[in-house]
């Protein structure tokens, strides 16, 4: 049985100039990052653009990865930062109504963009949440990080991460789309 090359080894080789190691690293995580982005932004093309931004950010900061923690945690710290920045930029482009607040000019997740109905419903439900709560739900239930990891990635305390998760859950409980998805 062939031993899998560790993330740390691939990172070292990529830093040393190996394009092959860098491509392997991307292959290993591109789907995970793309699906993360898709659930966060709800649109395949935006998710793809965001995925590219994440990997460009990883590439630029690769020398800064000290290997003192798991690579996925470091990767998703960059992904979370890029995602927040992306959504903030998108929100700034949206019109503002004095009574209703920000009005999204973008359409919601389109069902034909997803391979399954469940994916569409999940994405729709997640879009109902503020970005901060959406991130915690994503990192907890889809990426399976601990609250300590999530806190480290978002620059908040573990208790704050937990509070955001419970707030999100109570908000989603009332959402009809969620029932449909189940």
């Amino acid at each position: 049985m062939l031993a899998t090359v560790t993330d740390e080894t691939l990172v070292s080789r990529a830093i040393a100039g190996s394009d092959s190691a860098w491509n392997k690293l991307i292959k290993r995580y591109e789907k995970r990052v793309y699906n993360y982005a898709l659930r966060m932004v709800g649109h395949p093309q935006d998710a793809f653009d965001l995925t590219q931004e994440v990997f460009m950010g990883v590439h630029r900061n690769l020398a800064g990865f000290r290997g003192d923690g798991a690579f996925p945690a470091w990767l998703f710290r960059i992904a979370s930062y890029r995602c927040t920045d992306y959504l903030r930029r998108r929100r700034n482009d949206e019109p503002f109504d004095d009574e209703r607040g920000f009005i999204s000019s973008l359409p919601g997740p389109q069902e034909q963009a997803f391979t399954t109905h469940a994916n569409h419903q999940i994405s729709t439900a997640l879009q109902q949440l503020p970005v901060e709560q959406r991130q915690v739900v994503e990192l907890k239930f889809f990426q399976h990080f601990t609250f300590e990891d999530i806190a480290g990635q978002l620059g908040i305390s573990p208790n704050t991460a937990k509070t955001r998760l419970y707030s999100a859950l109570r908000k989603l409980k009332q959402h009809e789309e969620l029932r449909d998805a189940l």
Binding site: I26, E30, K31, Y34, N35, L38, R39, P44, Q45, A47, F48, T51, Q52, F55, M56, H59, F114, T115, T116, A118, N119, I122, V137, F141, F142, L169, L172, L178, A181, L182
Partner: peptide, 20 residues
């Protein structure tokens, strides 16, 4: 419910030509 739902998520593939 959310744990169950997350397990039902079907992994989507990124569009072709990953430029990165």
């Amino acid at each position: 419910q959310w744990r169950t739902m997350a397990s039902h998520w079907h992994e989507e593939s990124p569009p072709a030509q990953p430029h990165f």
